[in-house]
Design a protein around this nucleic acid. Structure first.
Length: 135
DNA sequence: GCCAACGTTGGC
DNA sequence: GCCAACGTTGGC
């Protein structure tokens, strides 16, 4: 089992949208680094759902329900892929970016180092720590 | 609203 | 193949 963090602008697609959406196609990723992470996601992996922009906080957890497959909108066949996810659990307390910065245990998170990356792996101990902060 | 960090594009 | 110019993302 691997752990991930995916970002979304709440204006574009929020956690609430994800909850209402059921099995949701996660598409439109047009960044090679992010795509490479999408490709190694496995069914059953867990992903934090992070709101970028004004909120800047982890709001819930989603599960990978379908592994990477070619994006039908990828007309030039550049190798873009989609996965499918669904919301599984909302955090009782959202965990903010500021909070994450203050935790020594979380200081190595890619989230803090590469602010523009929208799909990234999370270490198991980081995942568990954030879970604790959010409960 | 600004700016840093990246990614992409196009001229050379 | 390099690099300047430009566009986008996301934190501040």
């Amino acid at each position: 089992m691997n752990y991930w963090l995916v970002k979304s602008e709440p204006n574009a697609y929020s956690w609430d949208d994800l909850c209402k959406g059921g099995d949701v196609i996660w598409d439109g990723i047009r960044n090679y680094q992010a795509r490479n992470f999408l490709k190694v996601m496995k069914k059953g992996d867990q992903a934090f759902y992070y709101h970028s922009g004004k909120d800047r906080e982890i709001v819930g957890i989603a599960e990978i329900i379908e592994e990477a497959y070619p994006d039908p909108k990828d007309k030039e066949e550049k190798g873009w892929v989609n996965v499918k996810i669904k919301a599984t659990q909302k955090l009782n307390q959202p965990v903010s970016l500021d909070q994450i910065k203050q935790e020594d245990m979380l200081s190595e998170m890619i989230l803090l180092k590469q602010s523009r990356l929208s799909v990234m792996p999370v270490a198991k101990n980081e995942f568990n720590h954030i879970l604790k902060l959010g409960s």
